[in-house]
């Protein structure tokens, strides 16, 4: 659907919603709509990103299709979010599935060549099984992961600023610690997916999403802990099975696999969900098989997944949390 038509359709539906308001108790989208009797494009964008897609409003709606009013906010909001994920990142063009696949393969190849170049071996980890630097030394590894990582962060930051300017305006309001605390608590609990107590329309979806989110968080803890161990305490990998990096990474990886698979079964997989699953699966395999000959190739595969994930994150659904957090923050500030 052309963009103007999409926003016109959203406006048409929201006019019906504003004349009804039965959904006020489900989530903040509806009280926020009441403040916007004539929603403009940026209002609709804000509402769409505030929506956590629990589906309660649709199942409660007496005007849902096949009623002639054909009101279906979750799907129109999902389409608007797709526009948001495009519009605020740079460059706007996203790699398709094929492009991502090719990029992944290319990264694998480059890493394999780098490994050969620096170690003189093809993925060998002869002396110390499980030592990543036997596969790829620290500095090239850091550069391989760091470049796309920094790129992603820069695109996220730029997108966040532009989005905030559009939906809110005052940049100073980005520094409001108390409101942020509320926002953060609501975000990490997926509070707005609870349907005001009715629960998400798709049973288990919120639970799986939380498991995936916390799993991702634990993996970040694992990486950070490993960096601290190495650079501050001087302890070189591999770390023991009862160390912080291994436990948090192991639990986090399993959680990501469980949460991701659950979401995939419940709601169908997006490319973003697939990349998280590949990330978690290669990471887990690397850990489990670190004392075998498979360690080298698996590690390269995992690093390639990380590099590709960082590089494509700004152009995948990964960005959803940035706009959602900012919309929750804006919502908390405006009431």
């Amino acid at each position: 659907m052309p963009l103007d038509d999409l926003f016109d359709e959203a406006r048409r539906q929201l006019t019906v919603c504003n004349s009804c308001r039965y959904c006020a108790g489900y989530c903040p989208v509806w009280p926020a709509l009441e403040l916007r009797p004539a929603p403009e494009r940026r209002d609709i964008t804000h509402l769409a990103n505030l929506c956590h897609d629990c589906g309660d409003c649709l199942s409660a709606c007496m005007y849902a299709p096949p009623h002639e009013f054909a009101v279906a906010p979750p799907s129109v909001f999902a389409d608007v979010r797709k526009d948001t994920y495009r519009r605020y990142v740079w460059p706007r063009r996203a790699p398709g599935r094929l492009g991502t696949g090719i990029a992944f393969a290319a990264v694998c190849l480059v890493l394999a060549l780098l490994s050969r170049l620096f170690t003189g071996r093809w993925f060998g980890a002869a002396d110390r099984p499980g030592d990543p630097y036997e596969v790829l030394p620290h500095v090239p590894l850091l550069i391989a992961v760091g470049v796309p990582g920094v790129w992603a962060l820069a695109v996220f930051g730029w997108a966040a600023l532009r989005y905030w300017r559009d939906i809110h305006g005052r940049l100073a309001d980005l520094f409001r610690p108390r409101a942020w605390r509320t926002t953060f608590v609501q975000a990490v609990q997926l509070r707005h997916m609870e349907g005001g107590g009715a629960g998400c329309e798709v049973p288990g979806r919120r639970g799986f999403h939380l498991v995936l989110l916390y799993g991702f968080g634990l993996c970040a803890v694992s990486t950070t802990a490993a960096a601290l161990l190495q650079n501050v305490l001087g302890a070189q990998p591999p770390y023991s099975w009862v160390s912080v990096p291994v436990i948090s990474g192991g639990v986090g990886g399993i959680a990501m696999l469980v949460g991701g698979t659950g979401l995939w079964v419940r709601g169908g997989g997006s490319g973003f969900l697939w990349s998280l699953l590949v990330l978690a699966a290669t990471g887990m395999l690397t850990l489990l098989l670190r004392e075998t000959v498979a360690f080298g190739p698996l590690l390269l595969l995992h690093v390639a997944a990380v590099v590709t994930a960082f590089g494509t994150a700004p152009y995948s659904k990964f960005v959803h949390w940035i706009f959602r957090m900012l919309s929750i923050h804006h919502d908390n500030l405006e009431r």
Partner: peptide, 12 residues
């Protein structure tokens, strides 16, 4: 007392 989501939600 207001039904969360209105009458259709109650009936569901």
């Amino acid at each position: 007392r207001f039904f969360l989501g209105g009458g259709k939600a109650l009936l569901n």
